[in-house]
Every structure is written in structure tokens, then in C-alpha cells.
């Protein structure tokens, strides 16, 4: 028989055992969000493919055709989409998870389950979109007869996704916790994301940076590392492993700060939300 105590302050833990116990809820929350997201749309889940496609076309028009931005020697659409795929996991995941606690306030106030499931599932929802978006990616690669290094594909791509998800999860759960208390973040976030889109080498090559200070910042930036990894599958460029190592460490630190903040404050969510 399970025995546990409900007290004012429980000892800090990441609550992994409980997350495993409630694992099915990850599936149900993600499934619900994906379903609901496309339910009223005539094109349905097709939007998960169309959105990045439209973004890619738009940016190709502006950055490649109009501004002639360098794309490391690969066709710009391939360049852009390989950045956008990673970027979309990050930006959508961050948006979803930061707002997730507030959006699910009515559930939080009425029933107990490990709260971390909510921001985590919000990111999984973004990952589902990513899986659908991968199909256009493949289509574009075929269209441009872009060679792919398969060993790299099966190592670099998962690694870059992992770095992205870990980073998104850290920042997302951090913002989700803050957002419960200070709704200001809800309004601030769109600007932050827009800024980060242009601050990250999503649409232009990281080589565009010449300032050494910015280069150091970029090394510590896990999203830039992830994009670099994802791209090198196609460009065949050498990966700056030192940068990836630093970026991954930053991702892990963000991850733990996020969970720590979240777990520290979660017990009061129901009183505040």
C-alpha cells in the first residue's frame, strides 16, 4: 500500500517516480492539444506542414532573393528549413509551455497530478508538429537533390532535437512557473521570441558574426548549437564540437533551473492561478 504525507513543505525532489506513475497523462495532454489545435481547421493537421512551408517561402523571398544572404553553399530553402524546424520546436514549445499552466488553470484547481506534465506535454505538442513538418523537409531535400550523410542524419539530427527540447523545457517550465504569478510574461514572450529569431542563426549563417564577443555568446547558445548540428547533416560542414559541448551544458543548466523553479513554486499554483 502506498503511504505518503501531505505537508506544508515537502523535501525537494524532481518527482521522477510520480512522473513515471502518471506517464499516460503525457500522452493524453499532448494528444488533446494536437487534436484541439487542428479540429476546427478545414485543412486540419496539414497546417503543421503548411506553416513552416509558408515561413520558408517567405524568408527565402526576403533573405535570399531580396537581401542575397549567404547560405553556406546550400540552396537557401534547405538552409532556411533546417533552421526553421529546430526554431519552431523552440518557439512553439516555449510559447505553449509558458502559457500552459494558465491555460490549464481550471484543471489545476480541481485535481492533483504532477504539474510538470503540463509544460512537458506542451513541448511534446510542438514536437508532434515537428514530425509532420519533417515531411516537407524530406520533400525539399529530394527536390534539390541534396545529398545526405546518413550516419550524421541519425546522430546529429536526434542530438540537435534533444538539445532543443532540453533547452525549451528548462526555459518553458521556468516561464510557466513565473507566468502563474506574473501574467506580464504572457505579453513579454512574443517580443522575446521575435528577438531571439533574429538573434539566432536561423535565417542567416552563423559566420555572419565577426564580433568575438557575439561569437562567444553564440557558443553558449544551445539553440545555435542545435541549428548548427542540424544543418551540418546537409552542408557537410565541420561541427564546432566545443561549441556544441558548451551549448549542451547551458541547455542542461537551464533545464535544472527551470525544473527547480517550477517544483519550488508549483504547490501554490492552485492558490494563485
Amino acid at each position: 500500500m502506498t503511504e505518503y504525507e501531505i505537508k506544508a513543505k515537502n523535501k525537494f525532489s524532481f518527482g521522477l517516480a510520480e512522473l513515471i506513475q502518471y506517464r499516460e497523462l503525457f500522452y493524453f495532454f499532448t494528444w488533446r492539444d494536437v487534436k484541439v489545435k487542428y479540429k476546427q481547421a478545414a485543412l486540419g493537421i496539414l497546417w503543421a506542414i503548411l506553416q513552416p512551408l509558408i515561413m520558408m517561402l517567405m524568408f527565402t523571398l526576403i533573405f535570399s532573393k531580396a537581401l542575397k544572404v549567404s547560405s553556406d553553399g546550400i540552396p537557401y530553402p534547405v538552409f532556411a528549413i533546417s533552421g526553421l524546424l529546430i526554431w519552431n520546436i523552440f518557439s512553439n514549445g516555449l510559447m505553449n509551455s509558458a502559457n500552459s499552466m494558465v491555460n490549464n488553470a481550471n484543471i489545476i484547481k480541481k485535481i492533483y497530478f504532477p504539474r510538470l506534465i503540463i509544460p512537458m506535454s506542451a513541448i511534446l505538442t510542438a514536437l508532434v508538429d515537428f514530425l509532420f513538418a519533417l515531411t516537407i523537409y524530406v520533400a525539399i531535400l529530394i527536390y534539390y537533390h541534396q545529398g545526405v550523410d546518413f550516419t550524421k542524419l541519425f546522430i546529429y539530427l536526434p542530438l540537435s532535437i534533444l538539445i532543443t527540447v532540453v533547452t525549451t523545457f528548462g526555459l518553458g517550465s521556468f516561464l510557466a512557473a513565473l507566468n502563474v504569478k506574473y501574467r506580464d510574461f504572457q505579453y513579454l514572450l512574443p517580443f522575446m521570441i521575435q528577438f531571439l529569431l533574429f538573434a539566432n542563426p536561423v535565417l542567416y549563417s552563423a559566420k555572419a558574426f565577426t564580433n568575438p564577443i557575439i561569437n562567444t555568446i553564440m557558443k553558449a547558445n544551445p539553440i545555435a548549437s542545435a541549428i548548427q548540428l542540424c544543418r551540418s547533416v546537409f552542408t557537410g560542414q565541420e561541427v564546432d564540437w566545443q561549441g556544441v559541448a558548451i551549448g549542451s551544458s547551458v541547455a542542461i543548466v537551464l533545464f535544472f533551473i527551470g525544473i527547480y523553479t517550477f517544483r519550488k513554486t508549483e504547490s501554490y499554483f492552485a492558490d494563485l492561478a
Partner: peptide, 8 residues
């Protein structure tokens, strides 16, 4: 859903 202030 909400923690107590004290007691258990």
C-alpha cells in the same frame, strides 16, 4: 491541490 500552512 493546495498545501497546508502547517500540520500534516
Amino acid at each position: 491541490i493546495t498545501p497546508p500552512s502547517s500540520g500534516k
